[in-house]
Nucleic acid binder design. Structure first.
Lengths: 230, 230
DNA sequence: CACTGTTGTTAATGCTGTTTACTCTACCGT
DNA sequence: ACGGTAGAGTAAACAGCATTAACAACAGTG
């Protein structure tokens, strides 16, 4: 990479880093071009050399956040031996929660309605699918190994839901899972998502304060219901 | 109520109504004092006679949204005979989802990170507890009637979680429930919350499009797991 | 009928994103 | 080695934002 390109890339990274810092320190409202430029010893219009608009910058932050979340989850999963499906699921969801609690503003950027007037453009879609794809792979691996207990999972799935779920699988390709298995996976995802968003956004605090115990409980329920051994 | 007070109250309501309309039409970004005043044929500073600041107006909107949500859920629950605990739970959660899908921007105001720089003040707390209190009452009623199946609910609750849950009950008063029952209720709440927020914020659409079938499935899982007959 | 508090106005301040016109400088091809 | 050029930065300006201050008009009450 030519020097020119390299220093430019470094500036782009610095802008995003400063934006993230300001966001973490003062909330999403503090992400103003002028404040970022001031921190960097520049003027606001200079930032337009690097991002077409403030929304473009936010979009980059959203994409980065999705990727950081997926990276954290993938690293956690890969630290567990491939065969131990239960522990891999625990690791994935645990990393999801840990990342959310560790970077609440970035978590909010993704899963809250981030910034007024800003709607996530299509460009964030691929990054946003990474962590759900990971969860899907976990489910598919466990199913391929026969580790899922069909007797427990086989909730009677109504035909309408089965059709939707099968259409989804055709769209996304990859290994085909039975509708009840995929429906179970979607349910597990929603459960964890609900618990973690409630906790990160402070809605859970009035009830249990620290949500760790409740989260681990929910994790055990999921693992036990799936019939995964470990 | 004297006439003076009455017209003032009407103006307050009009301001909030216009704000809600703009929010629904153009997103939370459109909630600007100038735009509201313009729509009402006034100037922006006049609004300060009714709300101390823009944040105060947003706080009022948040409180109203919480109350509307609780009203909708209470109405749905009361339409079901007191004894049919399963159907009452279905009605409550169904109303929760319907309200969220019906007023997505107000839903986001409550459950997303609403507006940059805005953090919900303590004043919204009482209204925010109404719908969770309703869910708690539903659980307590079912338990008092002996409608919950202890054999299915009695997931082994670790001591740490049991302690937290019991402390929560002491703080809030009301009937004391066994820790496993309350933990089950919190889990059910989180599941529904997760599914509905995913759906309302558009994260579920790529997977299943219409989330109705998945939601009803999840509802059945909850009701069946609780052992409620109907 | 005069007084007073309420409701509204205009003008001004200091933010914000964004565009335009301009300067400077580092690199690239000859 | 040197002129041309693309890139990076600046200052100035515009429109819109929340908010405050000073001021005008009106309604209700003594």
């Amino acid at each position: 990479m030519p020097r020119r390109e390299r220093v430019r890339q470094a500036t782009v990274e610095e802008i995003k880093a400063v934006a993230r810092a300001q966001m973490a320190a003062e909330g999403t409202a503090a992400v103003t071009l002028r404040a970022i430029a001031r921190e960097m010893g520049m003027t606001a219009p200079a930032l337009y050399r690097y991002f077409g608009s403030r929304d473009d910058l936010v979009t980059a932050l959203v994409t980065d956040a999705y990727n950081a979340l997926a990276d954290a989850m993938e690293a956690a999963v890969e630290a567990v031996p491939p065969g131990r499906h239960g522990d891999r699921v625990r690791a994935a969801f645990g990393a999801f929660r840990a990342w959310g609690l560790g970077q609440p503003t970035e978590f909010a950027l993704i899963f809250g309605s981030p910034i007024p007037g800003y709607v996530a453009p299509e460009a964030t879609r691929p990054a946003g699918l990474r962590y759900t794809d990971l969860l899907g792979r976990l489910l598919a691996d466990a199913h391929a190994d026969g580790a899922l207990d069909p007797a427990r999972i086989d909730l009677r799935v109504p035909p309408a839901l089965a059709r939707q779920v099968e259409a989804f699988q055709r769209r996304r390709g990859g290994p085909a899972l039975p509708a009840p298995v995929l429906a179970f996976g979607l349910g597990a995802w929603a459960r964890v998502h609900g618990l973690v968003t409630l906790e990160v956004f402070g809605h859970l605090a009035p009830a249990v304060g620290d949500g760790t115990a409740l989260f681990e409980q929910e994790l055990e329920v999921i693992v036990r219901q799936s019939g995964l051994p470990d």
